[in-house]
Design a protein around this nucleic acid. Structure first.
Lengths: 215, 215
DNA sequence: TTCAAACTGTACTGTACAGTTTGATTTTTC
DNA sequence: GAAAAATCAAACTGTACAGTACAGTTTGAA
């Protein structure tokens, strides 16, 4: 937003990245309030003045970090609409697997924690919530199911609820095992659900949209 | 824990509650770091000295507040093991409904936000996570399904995953619409899913554990 | 009336922090 | 090699905060 960089030269870009990398690590590890600009400047190896040349305030630095971090999350490639149940199954599995793999990383969980805990109190981050990863997954699955429904593959009168039947269990792994478990911070990442579990989940899910299962 | 109350007289109990009520409101609205002991003391209408007589530190006050708040959440009464599918259905619906009704309250969401955002950084709260509400729901549903399975009502080789198939979608409402939506803070509570939606959800879920649907 | 517990207000300690100012020094660019 | 841009260190401003010290006041029961 407020681009107070000295120039937009490659040089300046690099410095920006250098500052953001340092800030990123600290914000994710300690949270926003517990991280001081002094610590950030030390970690970035620059003077305080330079920091404020590149970012007008601490909160704008956070905003830049979070925005970039969020942009790093990707959902599995959008593929052509499925024409068979087996294609649908494969696409759903791909989405579920890609999501959990990325999300169960310590950094991803820390980012989510940061967003959930701080965004309410920081207007600068408010809009970021809408673009948050789990919400994007729900939209994507809903679109996929809609296509499958149009193609006559499945039976789903309530698309949003059906999407939640798949996305919900996936989120439950992240939320319960990732966000709400009390493992010590250094104690390695929480174990993500295995591929077999996700396959089993997708198959259970397909039962709920199978043709003929309801009116 | 550290009980530094002047006495355990009813009088002291009341004062404790009075302080905790003020702190509760502030912590939930603003978060831990953004709430000062000075503000708490003002809201409680007492002197700073008194506050520190009843609670040895700010973080212990938070801990007391969170612990009490969490104790206020209840799951639907434990009922006798279901003997018919229709009983199972009713019990599942009761759990899902009770959970969402409580959880979609602004205060409940704020507490969850506080737990997720702060507990990692405050050893005093770490253990509280294990007792957090959503995790309790999963355990309860799993136990219920186990009983139903023993009674021969359902088919569920993977009890934990099956429980997640119900709990996950319920959590998805809280997580996506409650925690990760960016509605302005004063803008009323997020709309909880209606009873029809939850009924539909339970029925979809039952398809995944219906006898005969898989080996 | 006395006594003890609870409470008050105020001032204070020590610390931490975001952001600014200054004036000098380095680095880049032409 | 000079002008311009970027960076630096360090001191400083103003504020905020957790927790303590203190000296005096209220309250309620014996």
């Amino acid at each position: 937003m407020t681009d107070s960089s000295p120039t937009d030269s490659p040089r300046a870009q690099i410095k920006r990245q250098q500052i953001m990398a340092a800030a990123r690590q600290l914000f994710l590890a300690q949270g926003y309030e517990r991280t001081s600009t002094e610590t950030i400047r030390q970690a970035a190896g620059i003077s305080k003045q330079t920091l404020y040349v590149y970012f007008p305030s601490k909160v704008e630095l956070l905003s830049a970090v979070v925005t970039e971090e969020l942009a790093g999350f990707t959902l599995a490639q959008l593929r052509p609409a499925p024409t068979t149940l087996s294609e649908l199954r494969a696409q759903l599995l791909g989405l579920a697997q890609g999501f959990t793999r990325q999300m169960m990383q310590p950094d991803a969980l820390a980012l989510l924690r940061l967003l959930i805990g701080e965004a309410v109190h920081l207007p600068e981050l408010r809009g970021t919530l809408r673009r948050a990863f789990p919400a994007r997954l729900l939209a994507r699955v809903e679109a996929l199911l809609s296509a499958a429904h149009t193609a006559g593959l499945i039976n789903a009168p309530n698309l949003n609820l059906s999407a939640r039947m798949l996305v919900g269990p996936v989120i439950s792994f992240v939320a319960l095992d990732g966000l709400l478990s009390d493992q010590p911070l250094g104690g390695g990442p929480p174990a993500p659900p295995g591929l077999e579990t996700l396959t089993e989940l997708v198959d259970l899910f397909l039962l709920t949209v199978a043709k003929g299962s309801r009116g």
